[in-house]
């Protein structure tokens, strides 16, 4: 069965480039499976265009704000147009790393200890004087990242306390709240959870991420050849099971829908720590979800076709 799908990408998000790549690829995949596809680079004409287009569904390939944070989902709810991925509230929660971490921890999903600091705390309340305590609590190295936003933009791993202020300045350029997180040494893993037509979630095999040098930062993510991937991840069966369970739990706890990706670190004891959950995972040539689907024998067009069908089935139940 084929549908008229509006693929939404681009916009003014700082992740615009990645989003455009995702959108392009998703549109091609859907067209290959016989859907009628219209692509939109999101701007102020969007709602008018969607209203006049007689669409069955919006496929969201919007990374970052305002696509992943619930804004667009709220608008589409009002418009009455079904869309892929979770609703406004769930999107908002999952996109906000501190909130998502708290929700996960409450449900027993392990996530590294962290602190959230707002720019106001520094500018108006002298929080700089508290950085020593933050370092004492979280240890070194520690991870600094914007509270919201993806693609590792603004992410820094700080090895020495003296480097912390500069890393904070870098992260605050992306968001007015920043997360300081304990650095967990271990194997970096991503797991996609995909819902079947009836909504039953299924975890794909864990992908192990090994940057050729340094951290899995923006350059390592999007420079072809800069990172090696192993599928399944080279971790023992117990750790694999624990990771899979953590990804399934994350998908459930954060009310993800259709398709999600959970990023984790497996520490030396084989314990998985959830770093973040993506409700609208990247679909570019260098993205992890399409890669793990491919390893599972799921062709890219079938992956996105499945998302469309599940999203529509979800609305009709």
């Amino acid at each position: 069965m084929s549908f008229h799908v509006a693929v939404l990408s681009g916009g003014l998000s700082l992740e615009r480039e990645v989003s455009l790549h995702s959108g392009r690829r998703v549109a091609e995949g859907l067209a290959e499976r016989g859907h009628e596809v219209s692509e939109f680079d999101v701007d102020e004409r969007l709602i008018r265009q969607l209203r006049s287009g007689d669409f069955d569904l919006a496929y969201l390939c919007l990374h970052g704000r305002p696509g992943e944070d619930g804004t667009i989902q709220g608008m589409l709810d009002l418009l009455g147009l079904p869309y892929t991925g979770p609703g406004a509230l769930a999107s908002h929660l999952a996109f906000d790393k501190p909130l998502a971490k708290a929700a996960l921890a409450r449900e027993g999903v392990a996530t590294p200890d962290s602190l959230t600091i707002s720019v106001m705390a520094f500018r108006e309340m002298g929080a700089a004087a508290l950085l020593d305590q933050a370092v004492a609590r979280l240890g070194l190295p520690l991870v600094v990242k914007p509270a919201r936003g993806g693609s590792s933009l603004g992410l820094r791993i700080v090895g020495e306390a003296s480097g912390l202020p500069a890393a904070l300045i870098g992260a605050f350029a992306y968001d007015n709240r920043v997360l300081l997180e304990r650095f967990v040494t271990g194997v970096e893993v991503a797991i996609a959870v995909r819902e079947g037509l009836d909504g039953s979630p299924e975890a794909l095999l864990p992908v192990e991420i090994v940057p050729r040098e340094g951290a899995y930062d923006f350059n390592a993510r999007y420079s072809i050849g800069a990172t090696e991937f192993f599928i399944p991840a080279r971790i023992d069966p117990d750790a694999t099971a624990a990771c899979t369970e953590a990804a399934m739990a994350s998908h459930r706890v954060l009310n993800c829908a259709d398709l999600s990706r959970t990023d984790l670190i497996v520490d030396g004891q084989g314990k998985p720590w959830v770093l973040e959950v993506n409700t609208c995972p990247g679909m570019t040539e260098t993205s992890l979800v399409p890669l793990s689907a491919e390893a599972a024998g799921i062709e890219f067009p079938d992956l996105v076709d499945g998302v469309v069908k599940r999203a529509l089935a979800r609305r009709s139940t």
Partner: peptide, 25 residues
């Protein structure tokens, strides 16, 4: 277990090509 490389040609590029990377800017 299989190793996935996104670019099957990665081992064939000239060394100078490998220095070209994506950038935040």
């Amino acid at each position: 277990m299989s190793e996935f490389s996104l670019d099957p040609y990665v081992d064939r590029y000239a060394s100078r090509t490998l220095e070209i990377t994506a950038s935040e800017v």
